[in-house]
């Protein structure tokens, strides 16, 4: 368990999510403040930003006091000087998920946030160029949402006898 830096927003819930991983569960309002405090505290690298859609798994285990929402943004920060990772899980909202963009802190999160927007429709406030990155521009829907079908095409065997 790490001590959060002194200038982090008050009231952020932390928990050991697994053996070596330390999790922080800020609210949407605390999120940006927490990340900037952690950055000032020596977490130089934003390793990963991704979204998760908990539509079919709402009863996941969260520490006391965290209000689960459908969408979650998961940020992995890495401190090279301390050789430590911290994982931040923000409950991003259910109907119109939105969190602050980390672009001003970590410019390298630009593509990863765009990917989360493209795949989940999570809005990152303050992102300079929040457009689709992987799918075509005119694509409808956000493919990794749980209510978006996988788009499986039934396999056809053209030479097979009889009507199918």
């Amino acid at each position: 368990m790490i001590e959060l830096p002194a200038n982090a927003p008050a009231g952020v819930i932390t928990a050991d999510v697994l053996k070596s991983d330390i999790g922080c569960f800020p609210t949407r309002e605390q999120y940006f403040g927490l990340v900037s405090a952690l950055k000032a505290d020596g977490f130089e690298l934003c390793a990963d930003v991704c979204g998760v859609d908990y539509l079919e798994y709402a009863e996941r285990s969260l520490p006391e006091g965290v209000l689960p929402t459908r969408f979650e943004v998961v940020v992995n920060l890495l401190s090279m000087s301390r050789r430590q990772r911290v994982r931040i899980r923000v409950q991003a909202g259910t109907e119109s998920p939105a969190v602050d963009s980390l672009f001003t802190l970590y410019p390298g999160s630009e593509a990863m946030e765009r990917e989360a927007f493209d795949m989940f429709g999570i809005i990152f406030n303050g992102h300079p160029d929040l457009t689709r990155i992987l799918m075509p521009e005119d694509w409808e829907g956000h493919p990794l949402r749980k209510d978006y079908g996988a788009g499986r095409v039934p396999v056809q065997f053209k030479e097979a006898p009889g009507p199918r």
Binding site: M135, P143, Y148, G149, A150, G151, R152, V153, V155
Partner: peptide, 13 residues
């Protein structure tokens, strides 16, 4: 040839 392993929204089958 067929889409192979990736029978999903992104790949032309």
């Amino acid at each position: 040839s067929t889409g192979g392993l990736f029978n999903n929204y992104a790949i032309v089958q």
